[in-house]
Amino acid sequence: MKKRVTFALDQDVVAELKTISDETMIPQSRLVEKAIEEVIEEEKKKIDQGLI
């Protein structure tokens, strides 16, 4: 189940996101979701290792 959320992002980040989305035909929302999933996994590993 998807939930709509709103974030403010730097204009340069949005421009790069649009470019990548256009070139890969991957929706911007999917690219953002994938990036967030990767950050979550990285942070969980740090927490598990006691680094945070």
Rank of each mutant, 00 (worst) to 15 (best):
D48A: 15
E42D: 08
V13I: 15
F7Y: 07
E42M: 07
T19C: 09
R4H: 06
D12L: 10
T24W: 02
V39W: 11
I40L: 08
R30V: 15
K18G: 06
R4L: 14
M1S: 10
D10Y: 06
E33M: 12
K34N: 11
Q11I: 00
K18H: 13
P27R: 01
I40S: 04
P27Q: 04
I52F: 14
R30Y: 11
D10V: 12
T19R: 10
G50C: 09
D22F: 07
I26N: 04
I26H: 01
S21T: 06
K44I: 15
E43I: 06
K46Y: 11
M1C: 03
V32I: 11
D12I: 07
Q49K: 00
R30K: 15
F7A: 12
V14P: 03
I40K: 04
E37F: 06
I26L: 02
M25G: 08
K46Q: 14
T24I: 04
I40E: 05
K3S: 10
K45W: 14
T6Y: 00
I20K: 14
L51E: 08
Q49T: 03
A8P: 13
L31D: 06
E37M: 14
T24P: 01
F7P: 09
A15P: 09
V39A: 12
T6A: 03
L17C: 03
K34W: 07
S21L: 05
A8W: 03
I26G: 04
K18Q: 12
A8K: 09
D12S: 09
S29P: 05
Q11S: 02
P27D: 01
E33D: 08
K3Q: 11
E37H: 10
A35Q: 00
K44L: 15
V13N: 01
E33L: 14
S29A: 10
E33H: 10
V14S: 07
L9H: 02
Q11A: 00
S21R: 07
K18T: 12
Q28C: 06
V13C: 09
P27F: 01
E41N: 14
A35H: 00
K3E: 10
D48N: 13
D12N: 10
E43G: 04
M1D: 06
E16K: 07
I26P: 08
R4A: 14
S21F: 05
G50P: 09
V39I: 15
Q28E: 11
D48Y: 15
E42V: 02
V32S: 01
A15S: 13
K34E: 08
K44G: 12
I40P: 02
G50K: 05
Q28R: 01
E38P: 01
D10Q: 07
K3Y: 05
M25N: 08
V13R: 00
K34M: 09
D10A: 13
K2I: 02
E41G: 11
E23T: 09
E33W: 08
Q28G: 05
I47M: 01
D12A: 12
Q11D: 09
I36W: 00
I52N: 02
K18V: 09
R4D: 12
E38C: 08
G50N: 06
T6C: 05
D48Q: 15
Q49R: 01
E42C: 04
K44D: 15
Q11G: 01
S29E: 13
L9Q: 04
M1W: 03
I20C: 11
K3N: 13
I26K: 06
Q11N: 05
L31G: 10
Q28A: 04
E23P: 13
V39H: 12
A15N: 12
T6Q: 04
E37G: 07
S29K: 06
D10T: 11
V13G: 03
V5N: 02
P27V: 04
